[in-house]
Design a protein around this nucleic acid. Structure first.
Lengths: 152, 152
DNA sequence: ATCGATTCAGAAATATTTTATGTAAAAATA
DNA sequence: TATTTTTACATAAAATATTTCTGAATCGAT
């Protein structure tokens, strides 16, 4: 699927604010409702637009700690890896998990209320997994940038 | 601000799908439109709901490479740090940047089309910064989990 | 030149959001 | 305890937004 400049303009706008109305978008890119509507629907159908979500404020929800965890598995076989993946999917505090090539196997990003919660998570949920051999934690002191916007 | 169970139910729904109508939400939590409307407006006003965004498909936009970069600065002074932060804010391929305590200073997450783009980014945009002393890259082989949903 | 496909505009129909009005229960005050 | 105030909710009407319909203009291909 080929995106023309109009598609890209729409995507750039919707990435930043999904609550813009079709009319808002139409005005901003000098078009009528119809093409904007049709294009958005097409972008949704094609899966270019995956979903619309609300971004909540971490701190106001009491989540004041973010941690990167480098995890090394006991073995690098498919079974061990699949078992680990499965466990991670059911951990809401793990907001990011990526399989890595390097001196460890996974990079995780964890969001939690405080250090006590992290201690608990580390001891009772992560290190307890049979697939996990080593955990290396990096505590985030300050968030400089965090965006869902992709370059288009 | 205190969130009751009804607020939390609304937030859980909107985090996953911001295109649910007030009616949809009202039905799902057995309420009428008014309280749902009023609560959502209050959550927006209080900043609990920060924004509504569209999530786009990386691969369909041609971004097939994700990299974590551990960056060490030349000095850990405020000025150097502030200069680095400023530069990062203007780099659309850097979707995440966090100041870290540990054996390096920053953890970055980069999204790009391919290795060639990364090579270019590394040489022409990142390592060229006067604040940067060392870059350590970890290439993501496979994305296991990536969510904007916070545990509530 | 004509046909078909694509892209867009305008308007009507439908659905959603917003506002207004009112009621009942709980909390606060006299 | 009685009264007032506040809070939370329901229903309905008004204002907006989305969706669908109809048709015109442009571009390519035959």
């Amino acid at each position: 699927m080929i995106l023309d400049e109009t598609d890209k303009k729409i995507l750039r706008l919707l990435q930043v604010d999904a609550h813009l109305t079709l009319k808002d978008i139409a005005n901003k890119i000098n078009l009528s409702l119809t093409p904007v509507h049709d294009r958005v629907k097409r972008l949704e159908k094609e899966g270019i637009i995956e979903k619309y979500v609300s971004i909540l404020n971490k701190k106001k929800l009491g989540n004041n700690l973010m941690v990167y965890c480098q995890v090394t598995l006991v073995k690098q076989t498919y079974d061990v890896s699949a078992g680990f993946n499965q466990s991670i999917m059911n951990m809401p505090e793990v907001v990011e998990c990526n399989f890595i090539s390097g001196s460890f196997d996974y990079m995780l990003k964890i969001i939690l209320p405080d250090m006590e919660s992290y201690h608990n998570f580390h001891q009772k949920k992560l290190s307890i997994l049979p697939e996990v051999s080593l955990i290396n934690s990096f505590f985030i002191i300050s968030e400089v940038k965090s965006t869902t916007v992709l370059p288009i």
